[in-house]
Design a protein around this nucleic acid. Structure first.
Length: 506
RNA sequence: GGCCCGUUCGUCUAGGGGUUAGGACGCGUCCCUUUCACGGACGAAACACGGGUUCGAUUCCCGUACGGGCUACCA
């Protein structure tokens, strides 16, 4: 029988979760939901020196905002495999048990080398023109460890509490094969793998040991992670093997990376594309740096995850705008690409625009009201709702609305020079003053009727240039449909604006 | 440098031994329009290169180039 699908997202709380991490979480989530399985959040906080305050909370909040909610784990209600924080699991002695088992089986050993000694070893190897200096089956023989020291000596050192690590004893020359769901078979020779540290001198496990122990204990069925883990996968295979768990290990799937838009390297915390790299605002109190989030930039979480899902995956047909349910339904690892995908800021904006257009005017107004308030703009809901109807076609984000239509809230003080230079002449003042008077006599102030009034005025006064009227009333050359705009602003306001504009014109 | 992974329009991608190599973003032109948009139509734009295998290769194999990842008592 197939194992129940149980996958985990296991970030380390070393900073804000950036969008590459969000995508890894998303793919795990999609796979779990597709198969009716479990999605777990585990916190890999084994590096105490890199722990950042607030990072864990950020991760939880970011996943919540994205709608990528674990059904088990830190911040989402503990489950049967608690605790889900590795620091807490370490306190329970979980990892040491496995490390001891490896040592007892002759597959791991104690190493007492100091940082200086390790440094010296690397320098020595470099000087000897060794291509890849590492702690391995060859170099370990020149170091101070339980393979080179006598049993008595080792015991003495351990009893004296000498700082030491536990390392994996990787064989000298052995072919390691493993299957990746996305990439197929991968073969690496063990000579390329170093003797990885399993237990650090502070007693904490490294990622390599910890994730294996936890994946086994938590009955994880698939380890889905970024491609940056591919090179260490052979070492992981060895650990499972030496633990006698090779048949119980999760299936592996290494996701392609998200690359920078300009093409060089994987996405970093900061990018010049102008779009955020983080789901939510993030302030790093260590460095004092802050980063804007997708949420605060006016993105919808549906748009964000839709975009992310299509970066490296596709449903096999031409669909692009998909609900989360549709994505889940269509999701398979077979349709995940092998190659890295460059992040495309333009298309990302387009995704949000598509979702923006799906909202009705009442929903948009409800979203816009607090933004207006924060800008100190007072406007009533009815006005704002109509404003949304007019302006939404031009926007990608709700928080562009105000800037795109400031003149709906503040009368213009200046007027587009280009349009005036091209279209305003010595007769204009007389013509548009007459138009102003005609409008002033008009009581049926609707878009439709204003359209008729303009046509009649054009016939009577000579051509009324609609763009000129637009500039007189709004100050700018572009904007929503003119008559809708006049209708919304209202007769009183339009009169005021025309009077002011005409007083400024020659 | 070494090891691993990858390579279809500028970008995200579909496809796959014989196709006019399809879609989307962006870009351009036109239509609609007395303004501004939306919208519609059309267009430019890709199989990295070299060898095989084959009647035939963009598709399979091998090299090369290029790109990416890893190379810590970080994850």
């Amino acid at each position: 029988m197939e194992k129940r699908v149980r996958v985990r997202f296991a970030p380390s709380p070393t900073g804000g979760l950036h969008m590459g991490g969000v995508r890894t979480a998303l793919f795990n989530y999609l796979f779990a939901k597709k198969h009716g399985g479990d999605f777990i959040l585990r916190i890999e906080d084994t590096d105490q020196t890199r722990y950042v305050n607030g990072a864990e909370e950020y991760i939880v909040n970011a996943l919540k905002w994205c709608g990528i909610e674990p059904n088990e784990g830190v911040g989402f209600g503990d489950g049967p495999h608690k605790p889900y924080r590795q620091s807490e699991r370490k306190a329970l002695g979980i990892y040491k048990k496995y490390a001891d088992q490896l040592i007892a089986g002759g597959h791991a050993y104690y190493a007492f080398d100091t940082e200086e000694e390790l440094d010296a070893m690397r320098k020595r190897l470099e000087a000897a023109k060794v291509v890849a200096p590492q702690y391995n089956s060859v170099s370990r023989q020149t170091m101070r460890n339980s393979l080179t020291l006598s049993e008595d000596e080792v015991k003495k050192l351990l009893d004296a509490g000498t700082p030491h690590v536990v390392r994996l004893k990787v064989p000298r020359n052995e072919e390691i094969r493993f299957h990746d769901i996305i990439r197929g078979w991968v073969v690496v020779n063990s000579s390329q793998v170093d003797d990885k540290v399993l237990l650090k001198s502070d007693g904490m496990p490294t990622y390599h040991l910890a994730h294996i122990v936890d994946d086994i204990e938590m009955q994880i069925s698939h380890a889905v992670r970024g491609e940056e883990w591919l090179p260490s996968a052979p070492a992981h295979i060895l650990i499972y093997r030496y633990l006698g768990l090779e048949n119980d290990m999760p299936k592996l799937a290494h996701l392609p990376l998200i690359l920078r838009p300009d093409g060089q390297g994987k996405l970093s915390k900061r990018d010049k594309s102008g779009l955020p790299m983080f789901p939510l605002n993030w302030f790093d109190e260590r460095t004092g740096e802050s980063y804007v989030g997708y949420r605060e930039s006016g993105f919808y979480p549906e748009a964000f995850i839709n975009m992310l899902a299509l970066l490296g995956w596709n449903p096999g047909d031409n669909r692009e705008i998909m609900t989360k349910a549709e994505i889940i339904e269509a999701f398979t690892f077979e349709r995940v690409n092998k190659s890295g995908a460059k992040f495309d800021p333009e298309k990302t904006k387009w995704f949000n625009q598509q979702y923006l257009r799906q909202r009705n005017d009442n929903e948009l107004a409800a979203e816009l009201m607090p933004i207006l308030e924060s800008k100190g703009v007072k406007a009533d809901l009815k006005f704002v709702t109509e404003f949304c109807r007019l302006i939404k076609e031009k926007a990608h984000f709700i928080n562009e609305f105000y800037d795109l239509g400031v003149y709906f809230f503040t009368a213009p003080a200046s007027f587009d020079e280009k349009v005036l230079a091209k279209k305003w002449n010595e007769n204009s003042k007389a013509t548009y003053s007459k138009l102003r008077d005609k409008l002033n006599g008009e009581n049926n102030w609707t878009a439709d009727n204003l359209h008729h009034v303009f046509e009649a005025a054009s016939a009577e006064l000579g051509k009324i240039d609609m763009q000129l009227v637009r500039v007189l009333v709004s100050g700018v050359a572009g904007g929503p449909q003119l008559f809708d705009m006049l209708a919304l602003l209202g007769k009183e306001e339009i009169m005021k604006r025309l009077d002011y504009a005409l007083s400024q014109m020659k």
